[in-house]
Design a protein around this nucleic acid. Structure first.
Length: 426
RNA sequence: GUGGGCGUAGCUCAGGUGGUUAGAGCGCCAGGUUGUGGCCCUGGAGGUCGGGGGUUCAAGUCCCCUCGCUCACCCCA
């Protein structure tokens, strides 16, 4: 039923009822378990940050879609992504941290944007980052972790593939060419080039030429850049790169490492992947469902200069963000969303107020042993108690009536079998 | 911002060309044993038909406006 808008969750946000939250927790548990197995530690930061932490000059959409406001002379914002907050935390303790650092987060993020399938204004995101490791071994660990997660949720059979590129490769090529005199145009160029698959080559060329823009290439130069993005094989990319390319060597090394993890066959080199965030400097990647029906399941890359940009030391880093929305859509499409029970173990019911103290003592004893115990609060008939316990998925019901009390026992019923027995109360 | 679909019970939805007290399934509540669940049977509660206006003897149904949800595009994580 349609309710007044002030009684609905704002557009793009969600209420999580118990059954919804069970599913969310299930997913988060997998995020955390994979992170744990890879030796990552969980951290968190405030949802509200100084807006300046997120505002950058490269024209990224993520900055334009910031939820932000002025309050008591402070410009605050809801975090649209986790990386800047983590960078802030790393910077604050840079001198005391043993590198490389492996941190992960599972957080709520906000982005004010139009809604479509797989895209909401409020979403949760799993982040894994490695700080202080310049080599592609870090990328390999992260990609392996993504595949580990996919396998845990039932998508380990190639339903999801990762497209991967290196901004360093693109940068090497362009700095030997059209950006020789203007290296600072590289970041805005990446933001534009990221749109290739969405707006088409002509529109990208147009934006790269824009005399009012930050890139300002000639028409021929812009077309050359777009041409570079069409490369799909690593050998072709190598051929187009400057001789002795460091970036090509790193990509080759990365694929060797991915082979050692057994996931190289699910990763494709694709020069058109550059990502829409300005701070990426090296390897960048995105994961998509094999049918390409949905938006990217996750994405990430290397950002070796971000900490420097924020005024900190130069610590290389690489990470990814993995949202809860697209993966849930994908799991639903594949019929992989699990049916999760409440996890209630026991129901304890006093039949008659005189038996309540004994029922409370029993419930507390069971709880102390770690069981999930629902104590029936009102004066509910056994019929109802049994039915409710059954629906809740409880294993057994403990009934304590005058008869049992007189004998110092409690009636225990196993719901699965219907078997009953008396058990001593103390 | 553009275009489409949709708003009827807690949920999922039916309700040809406008016509008596608006329906189903599920869920919920009660009963079918006096202290015993699942299955089954019976009964019940629950609806400003998103909101406002209009046409009409008569509007859930037609027209206009409006709000909301949703999908696609635009744009972008």
């Amino acid at each position: 039923m349609a309710r007044p808008s002030d009684l609905q969750a704002p557009r793009g946000t969600r209420d999580f009822y118990p059954e919804d939250l069970r599913l969310r927790s299930w997913l988060f548990a997998h995020f955390r378990e994979v992170s744990r197995r890879f030796g990552f530690e969980e951290v968190d930061a405030p949802v509200v940050e100084h807006a300046e932490l997120f505002t950058r000059k490269a024209g990224e959409e993520i900055v334009e879609q910031l939820y932000h406001w002025e309050m008591h002379d402070r410009h605050l914002a809801l975090r649209p992504e986790m990386t800047p907050s983590i960078a802030r935390m790393v910077m604050a303790r840079a001198g005391a941290l043993r590198l490389p650092l492996r941190w992960f987060t599972v957080t709520q993020n906000w982005r004010y944007e139009r809604m479509t399938r797989g895209r909401k204004r409020e979403h949760f995101q799993w982040n894994m980052d490695v700080w202080g490791e310049p080599g592609v071994g870090a990328e390999a660990e992260l990609l392996a972790a993504i595949f580990a997660l996919l396998e845990r949720v039932g998508l380990g059979g190639g339903q999801v593939r990762i497209q991967l590129n290196s901004r360093a490769l693109l940068e090497e090529t362009l700095r030997a060419g059209v950006l020789r005199e203007r290296p600072e145009a590289f970041e805005p160029l990446c933001v534009i080039v990221d749109k290739l698959a969405k707006i088409g080559a002509d529109a990208v060329v147009e934006q790269l030429r824009d005399p009012a823009g930050a890139v300002r290439l000639s028409a021929d130069e812009a077309r050359d850049v777009v041409g570079l993005l069409g490369v799909t094989g690593l050998d072709d990319a190598a051929a187009a790169a400057p001789p002795g390319s460091h970036a090509v060597a790193e990509l080759r090394r990365l694929f060797e490492l991915l082979a050692a993890y057994g996931v190289a066959d699910r990763v494709d080199f694709d020069a058109s992947v550059v990502r829409g965030l300005a701070y990426y400097t090296g390897v960048v990647f995105e994961a998509y469902d094999a049918d390409r029906k949905l938006r990217a399941v996750c994405g990430g890359g290397r950002y070796d200069r971000l900490l420097e940009t924020l005024g900190g030391p130069r610590i290389p880093a690489v990470g990814f963000g993995f949202g809860d929305v697209v993966i849930a859509e994908l799991l639903a499409d594949h019929g992989l969303l699990p049916a999760l029970a409440r996890g209630l173990d026991d129901v304890v019911c006093a039949l008659g107020e005189a038996q309540r103290p004994a029922a409370i003592a029993l419930a507390q004893r069971l709880r102390a042993s770690g069981r999930s115990v629902e104590l029936v609060l009102g004066d509910t008939r056994p019929k109802r108690v049994l039915a409710d316990a059954d629906k809740a998925g409880a294993a057994r019901v403990w009934l304590l009536g005058p008869d049992e009390a007189a004998r110092g026992v409690v009636r225990v019923r196993e719901l699965a079998t219907g078997a009953e027995r008396d058990e001593a109360l103390s």
